[in-house]
Nucleic acid binder design. Structure first.
Length: 620
RNA sequence: GACCCCGUAGCUCAACUGGAUAGAGCAUCCGCCUUCUAAGCGGACGGUUGCAGGUUCGAACCCUGCCGGGGUCGCCA
């Protein structure tokens, strides 16, 4: 259950709590029947009409109208249906419209243009749906038909490096997906999958061995009794890694040394193992803090190293199945297929040095997950540039009979660029640390709050909390709003402009509703039956109804931007309503109705934001 | 070179996968605060959807060819 759902007792959720009409317990069949949005309802009616008239019902789909001046919903299916049987589109549309004529939910059904079917809902139907959403703790959201067991692999921090802006997308998008899949009813595990077992560890070990050979880890006489307190600090790691990586790139001798150290670590060198454990711990502590600042938690804080115990057996198994091939001193699996347009390189399982590569650990992680969780699906939220790598691993898994190809999905995404359109860099030209980025955003938020004189009478702690929430909302919303697969421009000033389509706008919208409902409560007002008396109220209810479609799109396509779109259009619809429909001064019945509309809007908005990983303050 | 992604208003991005008049937000301009938080609302301006063909009732979307940008192409992750 999502955190901001407001169904649990406690917290300041009184405003949004409603008695749930559904029976207690997970009676999903009941809820599914209850919770149909208009797209589902109207599509079902259209399917009936198409079938009665002898047309393929696959075209019978309702969708929100492109022309709100003409309709609430439309169906374009008469045109392709007519085409398939060689009839006149307009005539087909007219027959379908005639079939729908008696529907009591429709105030209007007619055809327009070459064969569009326009549907206008009756106020009664709209009011009924509004009450239904208002009475639902999930604000009108449906569940998936068949829940699945799903592992979501995201974040992917590297032990050797501090988290930087490159990790932002993987973390934010993956976390939003985790929340969404869980909310829709799947059983979901999020795994950070730390990069803690590859060449980067060998690089660090080799670099340390050179810089501080006196450390006990490098004493061959010593077998245990290594220091309990880490002599290595986070600063050491951050300083050493770039140096070592740069040197290995140019100097093949130091690269070979690091590769040997990698292999020795993996083969059980006691000193290296002890050193590794301390570096991993130091780094993990720091990274948990970074994730914490972003409000991101994992169910598993596993790393590549956790797959290590599965590797020997896996290699044996692969060899036994005849998949492993010796090639240039390495052991590989060939994954090419006849239909490939371009030759896919083989998956490297054992390097010529005898070490595990990242393909090895990824494949072994599949074995591990298959044994421990037995998931129906594993989603990898990793940069699109690694698509070839995942294709190799997934094919290898399929060939070896671990998880099937269709149980594994790489959800790639574009890179985050700077305002110049090139990969994001600091002014000095380096990679910006996540920590610095967040601090910058918080400072900017704080400055803007001061400037606007917001929360002058709040405690410093609350002000700091608000600034942090505004900063995180700005960063996350900007990221999630961009279509996942494309690159986007990271422009903090724009995200922090506090105007228009931004996270802060949404927080503001939510806070404003909260504040108004607080006032209503203080003056003893209750919410009551919904009455649609103004076009803005009608438009707002249509937006509320569109929530489930946004959830389904975001879920099916693994594209959180549909949720952003929904949050924004909902907030916009509410703002228009708010600006034009007075509540406190309205007559009693309208006041009660509008209070209920405000309550349900708030609940749905907070829910949507929560699914995006965005938390709104109580006031600001 | 081969193979993927992208090219839409001055800028940043949408467009429910082939449908109507291509939509938002910035920016610019014009109205709204003695009225529930103006981080807001209403309106205006802004387009040969990179270019050229093709497919059909209909194309930003599908096919072909160019032009431009990004990415990937076995012992890094």
């Amino acid at each position: 259950m999502a955190k901001g759902d407001c169904t649990d007792a406690g917290g300041d959720c009184w405003i949004t709590r409603f008695p749930d009409q559904a029976p207690a317990g997970p009676n999903r069949a009941f809820e599914r029947r209850l919770m149909q949005d208009f797209i589902a309802i109207l599509s079902a009616r259209l399917v009936g009409a198409f079938e009665r008239l002898g047309f393929d019902p696959k075209w019978a789909r309702a969708q929100p109208a492109d022309r709100p001046d003409l309709a609430d919903f439309q169906c374009n299916g008469a045109m392709p249906a007519a085409k398939s049987v060689g009839e006149v589109p307009r005539a087909v549309a007219e027959r379908i419209v005639a079939d729908l004529a008696e529907d009591p939910d429709l105030a209007e059904a007619n055809c327009a243009g070459p064969g569009f079917i326009n549907l206008r809902l009756s106020d009664a139907a709209l009011t009924r749906r509004a009450e239904q959403i208002a009475a639902d703790s999930r604000a009108g959201a449906s569940y998936v038909a068949v829940p699945r067991r799903i592992i979501i692999d995201y974040g992917g921090p590297n032990v050797a490096k501090p988290m930087h802006v490159g990790h932002l997308r993987a973390t934010i998008i993956g976390d939003a997906a985790k929340r969404l899949f869980r909310f829709r009813g799947d059983e979901v595990w999020g795994d950070a999958h730390f990069g803690d077992w590859g060449f980067q560890m060998g690089l660090l070990i080799a670099a340390l061995a050179e810089e501080r050979p006196d450390l006990p880890f490098f004493d061959p006489a010593l077998r245990d009794e290594y220091p309990v307190e880490s002599p290595i600090t986070l600063e050491d790691l951050e300083r050493l890694y770039p140096l070592a990586a740069a040197r290995a790139k140019e100097d093949s001798a130091s690269r070979d040394k690091a590769r040997r150290a990698t292999a020795e670590l993996q083969n059980g060198h006691p000193g290296y193992r002890a050193l590794w454990a301390q570096m991993a711990a130091v780094s993990r502590t720091a990274q948990k803090r970074e994730f914490g600042a972003l409000g991101v938690e994992f169910d598993f804080w596993y790393g590549e190293s956790d797959a290590d115990p599965y590797i020997p057996e896996m290699i044996e198994d692969l060899a036994h199945k005849g998949l492993l091939v010796e090639d240039q001193g390495a052991r590989i699996i060939r994954v090419v297929r006849a239909e490939d347009k371009r030759e896919l390189p083989p998956l490297l399982v054992v390097s010529s040095e005898g070490s595990a590569m990242y393909g090895t650990t990824d494949l072994a992680t599949i074995v591990q997950r298959s044994r421990t969780i037995d998931p129906d699906l594993v989603l990898y939220f990793v940069d699109a540039r690694q698509s070839d790598h995942f294709e190799q691993v997934f094919r290898a898994s399929d060939l070896a009979g671990y998880l099937q190809r269709d149980q594994l999905e790489h959800i790639g995404f574009g890179t985050m660029n700077g305002p110049d359109g090139k990969p994001f860099k600091t002014r000095a030209g380096g990679v910006m640390k996540l920590h610095d980025l967040i601090s910058q955003a918080v400072d900017k938020a704080q400055a803007r709050l001061d400037e606007a004189g917001i929360g002058e009478d709040f405690s410093p702690a609350e002000r700091a909390d608000i600034a942090h929430k505004v900063a995180i909302a700005a960063i996350k919303f900007a990221d999630l709003q961009a279509v996942r697969t494309t690159n986007y421009v990271f422009d903090l000033d724009q995200f922090m402009s506090f105007e228009g389509r931004t996270g802060p706008y949404l927080l503001y919208a939510a806070v404003r509703i909260r504040s108004m409902l607080r006032k209503l409560r203080e003056s003893g007002n209750e919410s009551g039956p919904i009455i649609l008396s103004d076009p803005r109220e009608r438009a707002l209810v249509l937006r509320l109804d569109a929530f489930d479609a946004a959830l389904r799109s975001a879920y099916d396509k693994r594209m959180p931007h549909f949720l952003c779109e929904h949050a924004f259009t909902l907030a916009q619809a509410f703002s228009a309503f708010y600006a034009n429909c007075p509540i406190l001064e309205a007559p009693a019945d309208l006041r009660a109705s509008r209070a209920r509309l405000a309550e349900v809007t708030l609940r749905q908005l907070l829910l949507t934001l929560d699914l995006l990983g965005i938390e709104a303050p109580e006031r600001m």
